[in-house]
């Protein structure tokens, strides 16, 4: 009973509005298990830069279900101890240089997963149940290397093996969205994996392009694509906060900058230079308008 009370009390139900991305990053303790979306789904890149500036460490990075540039940057900056993801990919920009290096030097603990397993783990957390069964995966080396996954017999069937995955409850979800309202509701449109992340996480931190006066839940056209403030711990406004990976429907990826990143991050030294120029310099001095 005591345990149950403690668990309920751990959640906050009111959204805080913070002054900026540095305050947002300040809400992420060292050692947190932090869930982030892929490059196409609203990445809080300004907040990730702030996280690197504050010297975050020992993070457990979770790609939902995979992760791109922000993952490579956090790993390169030494913020990450463990990675769980279905892929770490920079898409058409090529191999992720800092991730590749960290794997080669065994600098991070890698837990390879597969996309639906990450969704299913988060769905278990969303439902408050300990695990979720999933088809497929049997006989793969993904399963062979996951001592936290189990195979059970379908209790309703005969000779039917299923993989079961433990619930994934991130300490923090961090992402970027186009719009919030003054109640703390966040509009995500069709990017519903962000909704899943918010439902499953202890804390959800969001940077947004704009904070509007109109209540997003008052209009059905927006309400269905809106995360209610119930799940949103804190919001900070960040103009072009998804630069350089871009925010679909609003601004495109900054391809030139992303190519430059890949070139520089190819070496430790080049990556340090990238950080000096685009991360350790304060956010206001970084030109995000390209």
């Amino acid at each position: 009973m005591w345990k149950l009370r403690e668990r309920i009390l751990r959640f906050e139900f009111m959204t805080e509005f913070l002054g900026g991305v540095d305050d947002l990053a300040g809400r992420i303790p060292h050692g947190s298990r932090i869930a982030v979306p892929p490059d196409y789904s609203g990445c809080a890149m300004a907040a990730v830069r702030a996280l690197i500036r504050r010297g975050a460490r020992d993070l457990g990075l979770l790609g939902v279900p995979q992760v791109g540039f922000q993952g490579d940057m956090l790993i390169g900056a030494g913020c990450v101890a463990a990675v769980e993801t279905a892929a770490l990919t920079l898409g058409e920009y090529g191999a992720a240089p800092r991730f590749t290096e960290a794997i080669k030097s065994a600098q991070i603990r890698m837990r390879d997963s597969t996309c639906p397993a990450i969704h299913a783990g988060l769905q278990a957390a969303e439902k408050g149940v300990p695990f979720m069964p999933l088809r497929g995966i049997l006989g793969s080396d993904v399963l062979a290397h996951r001592d936290d996954w189990k195979t059970i017999n379908n209790p309703f069937g005969v000779d039917d093996s299923l993989v079961v995955l433990p619930a994934i409850r991130p300490d923090v979800s961090l992402f970027h969205a186009a719009l919030a309202d003054r109640e703390g509701n966040v509009w995500i449109g069709v990017r519903r994996e962000l909704m899943l992340m918010a439902h499953a996480s202890r804390q959800t931190l969001v940077s947004v392009e704009a904070i509007g006066d109109q209540d997003l839940l008052s209009d059905d056209r927006y309400a269905s694509g809106t995360i209610p403030s119930l799940y949103v711990s804190a919001i900070a406004q960040a103009h072009r906060g998804a630069w350089p990976v871009g925010l679909k429907e609003h601004y495109a990826p900054d391809a030139q900058h992303l190519r430059q990143y890949v070139l520089l991050a190819a070496t430790e030294d080049g990556f340090r230079r990238y950080l000096d120029k685009f991360v350790y310099a304060s956010e206001s001095s970084v030109d995000v308008s390209a």
Partner: peptide, 18 residues
């Protein structure tokens, strides 16, 4: 996990292939 060459990862293949 300490690969000579590391690629992005399995994505949804471990599941969709079935």
């Amino acid at each position: 996990p300490k690969a000579k060459a590391r690629f992005p990862g399995s994505f949804g293949s471990s599941y969709l292939y079935f």
